[in-house]
Amino acid sequence: MDVLSIQHLAKSFGNTSVLRDVSLSVSESSVFGFIGANGAGKTTTMKIALGLLRADGGEVSICGEHMRFGMTATNRHVGYLPDVPEFYNYLRPKEYLRLCGQIAGLDEATIKHRSSELIELVGLHGVKKKIGGFSRGMKQRLGVAQALINEPRLLICDEPTSALDPLGRKETLGLLRQISGKTTVVFSTHVLSDVERICDRIAVLAGGTIALEGTLAELKTRHQADGLQIEFASEADLERFCAGVPERILRKSERANTELTLHVRDLAAAQRASLQLLSAEDILPVRFELLEPNIEDLFLEAVA
């Protein structure tokens, strides 16, 4: 069953149409990367799914239940980590988690157990000071803990790493990966390396619609490489190779020192021809590889 299903979502702010027709579904126990440029509508989509914003059109279901704006019933399945989580600064972390647990309807024993477990998980064990004295990274980690207090089936994170230093980013991503076994994670970002690091599936939001969706492997296959890169031992080898490359297979070529990049019409034919040429010229390349599209290429292609 899909934990989150969004169908034909539309939303405008005044005359600005942010979402035109967004449809996506997230299956259980996956880490779903929701990618888009700044202002693409990632936060808007998430807030609509949480019942915080009203959609102009479309439907959202969470764990099979229809979500209604302003109503919070479906949120019992959800944990939410905002991009900049705001807390009651006068509370201590355990007091805050207790409040969240009570609001989520947990009993005292469960709250106590879960709070200790989560405080340990996010590395805030032994921290007694009030939240007002927390650093940005500590607040983000407490944000993860509060989002998980009710053992949600779906964790929605809005750019959880965008304002963190490399260490904080690594910690937060590690946490998300760690919990993804039990909880489905949807996480929006424009940091593409984060997506490659932890996501099973991705969707790219561009122009108010989902421009691209699938697993990273699927997308890379779908957007097949059209290039070869060969590194030669010397420029002389490179020159000899270039002189023999059949024009018919090439779209264009780029040279950088002893490295040659070939963009070709038919990849299999080009591979065969290149290997034959190397063999015929008795050239031993240092490196011979297919140019796979990376997530940045996919993203740029989608938003172009």
Binding site: L52, T72, R76, E86, C100, A104
Partner: peptide, 15 residues
């Protein structure tokens, strides 16, 4: 203004 209600409302508490 500060957005402190977001966390509690997304825990399922009624407005």
């Amino acid at each position: 203004n500060r957005g402190t209600l977001i966390n509690v409302l997304t825990k399922g508490m009624r407005r």
